[in-house]
Computed example of a mutant assay.
Amino acid sequence: MLVALAAAVLVGLFVAASTSSAAFGPYNSAWDGSGEFRGEIQTDGNVESELVRDTDRYETAPANETTAFVVAPEESYGAADAARVGRFVENGGTLVVLENFGAESNELLEDVGADARANGSVLLDEQNYDRGPAMPIADGVTDHTRTAGVEQLSLNYATAVDPNGATVLVETGDYAYLADSADADPDADTDLDSRPVATVEDVGDGEVVVVGDPSITINAMYDEPDNAAFLERQYADGERVLFDLSHGEELPPLASAMLTLRELPALQALVGLGVVVAVVGASNRTLRDGFGAVRARLASGDDPDTLTDDERAELLRERHPDWEESRIRETITALNRSRSKHEER
């Protein structure tokens, strides 16, 4: 019994130290993480992938063969950081920015010299949608190398992209509109029209792609038509992918330690796995949370995979108190659908 308990605790500590709960996080395997997107690129034998914690990497990466993904950053890029990203694009790099409502991405786009902007209002479509108007299907796809094999994007609380002269890659049907809330109904004054949701433009010797929905990268939406194919096309012609995490939440301790070891071979030779142990041990809060989660699970016997929709809804309300009920319901539906697809594989 004690051996089983100890094993369960160790497993829980390892999971807590090696995974993340951050939205869009590459080490988050839950519905709102992008672990599946990261995994797909890591297993692609045609490209190398890196997690970038500092914009200095933009200065050393070979720009012509590199695509950098910036997904809904939480902090503004300072002048020095934005300048590094800008030089990367000027020298031939591809920058893909996915954003719906945050201002930080638009600031970065301005700093690197791009013209397109994320509009910031909720994109709705009463005619062409999946599970509700806030989940539009954008099937107006331009014939372009960046959309080869793509017939639509499946969106989830997206915004439109204001091209301002950039080339439109994907747009909605003719009955989409922008609103302050996902529950807003169109009226006589509502401007119904096709809305761009993805653009591309030349900046210097490079290109900037802007997508009005970061959720196409998350696990619940990645396999929806044709989100994975579109994301793959953005780096398919290159040799390297950078996941820019420099202005988001920090990596989980174990992942951070492993990345540090890879970046510093001398340190790896000197301390080896001792660095991993030290970093994990220093992450007291994460480890306590992991131990508490394991202890609670052992006490209650709960399994997250067996939660009912009502229990999932309650968890979402606690985690995202600002979300509307319609978004919670649609997210649960998307999560169930994604899990069902994986079980069928």
Rank of each mutant, 00 (worst) to 15 (best):
P73W: 07
T308P: 05
E126V: 09
G281S: 12
R233P: 01
I218Q: 06
Q42V: 11
D223Q: 14
T199P: 08
G212L: 04
A4T: 11
L178F: 08
S121I: 00
Y175C: 02
V89P: 06
L124T: 03
P163V: 08
F88A: 06
V97R: 06
N91R: 15
P73T: 08
A103I: 03
L259Y: 07
L270F: 10
P304Q: 09
G35N: 09
A334Y: 07
S340W: 10
S194I: 02
R117E: 13
H144K: 03
L245S: 01
R57G: 01
M258A: 12
E104F: 13
D32C: 04
A82Q: 03
D115A: 15
E36R: 15
D183P: 01
Q127C: 03
A23D: 15
T43L: 07
A266T: 14
A266V: 13
A296Y: 02
V161E: 05
E314G: 08
N336Q: 14
T306C: 03
R295P: 00
G12D: 03
E110Q: 15
E239F: 04
A23H: 07
S154D: 08
L109P: 12
L95I: 11
R312F: 07
K341M: 07
E249A: 15
Q152M: 06
L298Y: 04
A61C: 05
A63C: 06
V277Y: 04
M221Y: 04
M258L: 15
V70G: 11
Q268C: 02
V150K: 07
A80Y: 00
V122H: 13
E74W: 02
D237W: 01
E311N: 02
A7K: 10
A79E: 15
A79G: 04
A228L: 02
A188W: 06
S215M: 09
T172G: 04
P163S: 12
V209W: 11
S121A: 13
A7G: 11
E201T: 10
A118Y: 08
V97I: 12
E249H: 14
Y177V: 03
Q42T: 10
T308L: 08
A83C: 01
A30G: 12
A228M: 10
D56P: 01
A176K: 02
Y129W: 11
E48P: 00
N128S: 11
D44W: 11
I216A: 02
E344W: 05
T43P: 00
L270P: 00
Y27F: 15
V89G: 05
D185C: 01
N91L: 09
P186M: 02
A166P: 08
V271K: 06
N64G: 10
A6M: 12
G132R: 07
K341T: 14
N46E: 14
R345Y: 10
Q152G: 03
A30M: 07
D185P: 00
D162E: 15
A188V: 10
D180E: 15
M1D: 08
A68H: 09
L270G: 05
G165Y: 10
V71G: 01
A266Q: 10
P304A: 11
T19A: 00
S18E: 01
N119D: 15
L273Q: 10
A269T: 13
T190H: 04
D183N: 13
P304R: 12
R195N: 05
E36S: 06
Y129S: 09
A166K: 08
A8R: 00
I41A: 04
L169S: 07
E90Y: 01
T147M: 10
